[in-house]
Computed example of a mutant assay.
Amino acid sequence: MATDEPNVSIGDVSHSTFAIGSHARAESHHGTAPQRDEAAEELLKAVRELRADLARVRSSEQTAALDAALAETEDEITRTGQAAPTRRERLRELLTDSQALLSVLASAGAVAGLLGM
């Protein structure tokens, strides 16, 4: 008995990204990681160190805002290989507002130095 159903054949799908259905969404995570220059690597390392140090101090509105901006910077460098100038400027502003924190945490000073402060 023959049916009027369409035939679908899927071959080798390795290294492919596709989605099926009216609300499907495909997202690819394979490939090579973005290349980072030495300055981006240094900033990423300093951002991670400062985030670790912030976890050890009493949380305030300032430290929470700084941690959020650092997390966004870390994510951006990891995804794109660099931190955009606007992201760097935002960090400069937050670090300027946290001068007391800079004197306590050496890691904050390292990030500030890499941002040209």
Rank of each mutant, 00 (worst) to 15 (best):
E5Y: 07
P6F: 09
P6S: 12
V8A: 15
I10D: 03
I10Q: 01
I10M: 09
G11R: 04
D12L: 11
H15S: 15
H15C: 09
T17L: 08
G21H: 09
A24F: 11
H29A: 07
H30W: 15
H30R: 15
T32H: 10
T32G: 05
D37C: 11
A39D: 14
A40M: 05
E41Q: 14
E42M: 11
L44S: 06
V47K: 02
L50A: 02
R51T: 07
A52G: 02
D53Q: 06
D53N: 03
L54M: 07
R58F: 01
Q62R: 10
T63N: 03
A64M: 10
A64E: 09
A65I: 02
A65P: 01
L66H: 00
L66C: 04
A69W: 01
L70N: 00
A71Q: 11
E72H: 04
E72G: 06
E72W: 03
T73A: 15
E76L: 10
I77F: 11
T78P: 02
R79K: 13
R79T: 09
G81F: 11
A83L: 13
A83E: 06
R88E: 07
E89N: 08
L91N: 01
T96N: 12
Q99N: 04
Q99T: 11
A100I: 04
L101W: 00
L102H: 03
S103K: 08
S103C: 05
S103Y: 06
L105F: 10
A106T: 15
S107P: 01
A110I: 05
V111P: 00
V111L: 02
A112F: 04
L114H: 06
M117S: 04
